[in-house]
Design a protein around this nucleic acid. Structure first.
Length: 421
RNA sequence: GCGGGCGUAGCUCAGCAGGUCAGAGCACCAGGUUGUGGUCCUGGGGGUCAUGGGUUCGAAUCCCAUCGCUCGCCCCA
């Protein structure tokens, strides 16, 4: 019985152009993060289930119905990571990395959520993200946001996104607001949608960004969080906004931008696009001052974001082109073996070289064309006898005979594709 | 988990008031052109028409189910 050959629902094979776009997003993110002084961390792809269950909230949708959880052969309950923050914080605590805060970490990799796939939403998807641990200053929020914006600029998609900004205040502010909001929603519960009644139980703040028209009416008259902010929280938020303005980062304040998870505090933000349908958030994050302690670490604040690699890849208007190889074309038996020696030498020098296993000059040239080669090198009786190689520029058609000793230097001068390890 | 749309060659699709309906373009292979590509010409390989069942003399075409894709709700990056 042959196995089913389709990839598992919500997963994708990446190859060619699509893979290049993903790589481009990830590499751009990595390079920028390093430039901002972040250190890369790679954590395991699965953790003990409790790492996510406790931190994301036992009642959250992610935990209750979206995690890939399984028992390993030793009986431990493990979960494929549904997001990066909990895993990174766990690693920072257990690795003792928090003794010299602030700690700035970058990560990238696949995440897993059992959801109904749709545009920009897969069951195995990829994120890049940053976390700043141990910095309670507004400057940290701002640096994270600026890095997010910088990433979008570098990818050429910033103009098609908009930064939404909000604050949840400190835990006390937030708790008082939540109480007032729940009271209001309870008073109007007969007008709420079924979805929002459910939210009311689990995640009242989420009602604020409901799309249901009836819910919106109830929300319109609801108390607003700004009125419940402590003086300290207001000052913090004002500082974040002032610094963003100072650095020329455009944003819109969005009082309905909320996070469901309890450990979120103060700044919350999302870079949204209109171009990806329902899954419009390409970079999203916020401050989570309660998380590290909640996970059993020191009482350190944190702020960070995650970006959806697939979503950003879809947004790219151009993708990096593949390298244009140099084709080696031996002509005749005698040149065949010599061509392989030459190919090895050129590859050792870093050049991208294609050498077909068989065929006459014509089929080989057709192949070179198909591969998008920039140069072709002919090696036949004549060249063998003269110790030369004939170099053809496939864009212009110009040919020159070169002594073999000068080949590498000439290819370099002409800018032939190289990949350095 | 709930709704809508869609599944025909590797790719993009045509064919669908049931009766040469298994096709086109691109891609691929070979030859024209065994010391030279992009154009052109000729020929060729490829499809259980997603899968299973039903209606019918006859189904890619109609019906049902399943699987998958896709868009929205939900959730979220």
């Amino acid at each position: 019985m042959a196995p089913r050959l389709q990839p598992v629902r919500g997963t994708r094979d990446l190859v060619g152009e699509e893979l290049r776009r993903h790589r481009h997003v990830v590499e751009t993110g990595r390079h920028l993060a390093l430039r901002y002084g972040f250190e890369e961390i790679a954590t395991p792809i699965f953790e003990f289930t409790e790492v996510f269950a406790r931190t994301l909230g036992e009642a959250s949708d992610v935990v209750t119905k979206e995690m890939y959880t399984f028992a390993d052969r030793g009986g431990d309950s493990l979960t494929l990571r549904p997001e990066g923050t909990a895993a990174v914080v766990r690693a920072a605590i257990s690795g003792g990395l928090l003794r010299a805060p602030p700690l700035k970490l970058f990560y990238q990799g696949p995440m897993f959520r059992y959801e109904r796939p749709q545009k920009g939403r897969l069951r195995q998807f990829h994120q890049i993200g940053v976390e700043i641990l141990g910095a309670g200053e507004p400057a940290a929020d701002v640096e994270a946001i600026v890095l997010g914006r910088h990433l979008l600029e570098e990818l050429g998609v910033a103009a098609r996104t908009r930064l939404h900004l909000n604050t949840l205040g400190d835990p006390e502010s937030r708790a008082r607001y939540r109480e007032a909001l729940v009271a209001h929603l309870e008073a109007h519960r007969h007008r709420l949608s079924a979805d929002s009644l459910r939210r009311l139980e689990r995640n009242p703040l989420r009602v604020l960004d409901s799309k249901d028209p009836g819910d919106r009416e109830v929300v319109a008259t609801a108390p607003v969080l700004v009125d419940f902010l402590s003086a300290g929280s207001r000052a913090f938020y004002a500082e974040v906004r002032a610094r963003l303005a100072d650095l020329g980062v455009p944003f819109v304040e969005d009082p309905h931008l909320v996070r469901g998870l309890d450990y979120y505090t103060h700044t919350t933000f999302e870079f949204l696009t209109e171009e990806l349908g329902a899954q419009g958030a390409v970079v999203a994050g916020g401050r989570y001052d309660g998380l590290v302690r909640q996970m059993g670490g020191p009482d350190l604040p944190g702020v960070g974001w995650a970006a959806g690699v697939e979503r950003l890849a879809m947004l790219l208007s151009t993708s990096p082109p593949p390298p244009r190889p140099t084709a080696l074309v031996p002509i005749g038996e005698a040149a065949e073996r010599e061509a392989w020696r030459l190919a090895l030498a050129l590859r050792r020098a870093g050049f991208v070289v294609d050498l077909a296993y068989r065929g006459g000059p014509r089929p080989r040239m057709k192949r070179a064309d198909r591969l998008g080669c920039r140069f072709a090198l002919f090696l036949g009786e004549e060249e063998l006898a003269a110790g030369t190689v004939k170099l053809r520029d496939l864009d212009s058609g110009a040919e020159t005979a070169l002594p073999r000793a000068r080949l590498s230097a000439e290819l370099e001068r002409l800018g032939a594709a190289r990949i350095r390890s």
